[in-house]
Each structure stands twice: as C-alpha cells, then as structure tokens.
C-alpha cells in the first residue's frame, strides 16, 4: 500500500538533510586537506630557506676564518722566518767584519817586523865593528869585545824572534783569511737561501690564496645557484598556493547548494497537500538564482533552465580601477 504523504515528506526531508550534511562535511574535509597541504608547502619553503641561510652563513664563516688564519697565523709565521734569517745574516756579517778587522791589524804588524829585523841587522853589524875595534886595541879592548859579542848575540836573537813573529802573523792571517772566506760563503749562501725561501713562502702563500679564492668562488657560485633554485621553488610554491584557492570557490558553491537543500527541507516539512506534485518551487529557484555570487553558478543554472536569459558578460580576472 502506498505511503501516506507525511511519511513520504519525512523521507524526502531526511534524504535532503543527508545530502546537505554530506556536502558540508565533504567541504570541511577538503578545507582540512587543503590547510594541511598548505602547511606542507610552507614547510618546504621554510626548510629550503633555512638551508640557503645555513649555506650562506657557513660560507661567510669559512671565508672569515681563512682571512683570520692568513692574517693571524700564516703571514706572521713568514715574517718570523724572515726576521730570524735576517738576524743570523746580521750576526755572521758582524763576525766577518771583525775577522777582516783582525786581518788588517795583523797585516799592519809586517812593517814592524821588517823594522825590528832591520834594527837587529844593523845592531849585529855594529857589534861586529865594535868587536873588530876592540881586538885592535888589544888587552884594553877585551872587556869591550865581551860587550860587543853580547850585543851581537842579542841582535841575532832579536832578528830570529822577529822572523818567528812574522811567521806566526802569516799563519794567523792565513787562518783569518780562511775564516773570512768561510764566513763570506756562509753569508752568501744564507742570503741566497733566505731570499729563495722567502720567495717560496710568498709563492706558497699566494698559491694558497689563489686556490682558496677559486674554491670560494665555486662555493659562492653554488650559493647563487642555490638561491636561484630557492627563488624558483618560491615561485612554484606561490603558484601552487594560488591554485589552492579553488577550495574557497568550491566551498562557496557547495554552501550555496546546501542552502537550497535546506530551503527544500523546510518546504517539504511544511507541505501537507501531497508530495511532490503540489510542491511549488518557483520561488526557491528565483531565490537561488538571486543569491548566486559567481558567474559559474549562474552559468550552470542557465544551462539547466535554458529558456532563461543568456550568460552574463565575463569579467576580467584582474582589474585595477
């Protein structure tokens, strides 16, 4: 047996309520999902940005560290080596000058030895003459002959001592000359080595800087590339976030449909004179159309009730007044 109208009306109300609530919950779920996705996108941006900043900071720190190492460690070490070498050079130079001074003074002794030998020779001759004269005067000159003989021996001894001294001075000068030569060779070798070592150190320093500069440039280029990638990511994320706005458009359209379903629920609940033929929904349709806020809503409505007026003119999506 056919159901009575109130029961049928009750079923229809229930059906409409279910449809409306299903729609609203679906919108709510979409909103929750879109919010989660947006938070994820935000997370992608935050992670990317943090990486870029970390990289940039690490690069700046390492460059500062290199500069500090160069100014506080490498350069002072090179200066220290140069200073030490200069000190040794100066010491050897001073010693060489002193040796040269000694040699000059030893050389100055040679004329003195000549003079001493000359005096000894003259004294010897004088003593010989004195001995001849003493012999000539006979007994009376015997004492004088003894003195002359003693003077001659002294003269010979002086001459021998002078000769011995000359010989020792010559030995000394030979030794001094050898030392001076050694010192000069050391000095030359030291200067040559010092210059070569310092030049090598400076070259090493410059090479190190050049390598570090090249490495730094590579890293800065990598940073620029990373920033460029980050910008591209930000651009894509912005576009994606813009696309997410579809959810609000869908929400408004679904809520409008839910509002109509609610109006229908009320109308069905109020119907007492038979279902559904006696249900006049013209005013509901009119209200529905009046409350549209989107062109797309209007277009769908018109498509269904095609006898109505045409589509409204499209509005440009972006317009500055």
């Amino acid at each position: 047996m056919e159901q009575r109208t109130p029961d049928r009306a009750n079923d229809l109300t229930t059906l409409l309520t279910i449809c409306r609530q299903q729609l609203l919950e679906a919108v709510e779920q979409t909103e929750t999902g879109v919010l989660r996705v947006t938070e994820r996108l935000k997370g992608v941006f935050a992670v990317n940005q943090a990486r870029v900043k970390e990289f940039e900071q690490a690069l700046a720190d390492s460059q500062a560290e290199l500069q500090r190492w160069n100014s506080e460690s490498l350069a002072p070490q090179i200066e220290e080596v140069a200073r030490t070498l200069a000190q040794y050079t100066s010491l050897i130079e001073t010693a060489t000058h002193r040796l040269e001074g000694l040699d000059r003074r030893a050389q100055a002794l040679a004329p003195l030895m000549d003079r001493i030998q000359g005096v000894a020779r003259d004294t010897n001759l004088l003593a010989l003459n004195a001995a001849i004269e003493a012999a000539r005067v006979g007994e009376a000159g015997r004492g004088f002959a003894v003195v002359a003989d003693a003077v001659r021996r002294l003269a010979n001894e002086s001459g021998a001592m002078a000769q011995d001294t000359r010989s020792q001075v010559q030995d000394l000068r030979q030794a001094l000359s050898a030392d001076i030569n050694t010192s000069r060779q050391m000095l030359d070798a030291l200067r040559e080595n010092m210059n070569a070592s310092l030049a090598q150190l400076h070259r090493a320093q410059q090479d190190a800087w050049a390598h570090m500069g090249a490495a730094g440039e590579t890293l800065w280029n990598a940073l620029a590339e990373l920033k460029s990638l980050h910008s591209a990511t930000v651009h894509e994320l912005s576009e994606a976030l813009g696309e997410m706005q579809f959810q609000d458009v869908v929400r408004q359209r679904v809520v409008a449909v839910a509002d109509v379903l609610e109006a229908l629920e009320r109308r069905v609940g109020e119907a007492t004179d038979g279902m559904p033929a006696a249900l006049n929904l013209t005013d509901v349709l009119e209200t529905m159309q009046r409350r549209y806020v989107m062109r797309s809503q209007f277009v769908v409505h018109q498509r269904v009730v095609s006898a109505q007026d045409g589509e409204p003119a499209p509005v440009p999506p972006i317009e500055l007044f």
């Binding site: 813009g242 999506p317 317009e319």
Partner: peptide, 8 residues
C-alpha cells in the same frame, strides 16, 4: 578587483 583563484 581580482577573481579567485589568482596565481601567486
């Protein structure tokens, strides 16, 4: 006046 959805 901008219409949703608008690209970033």
């Amino acid at each position: 006046w901008l219409i949703k959805p608008v690209r970033g």
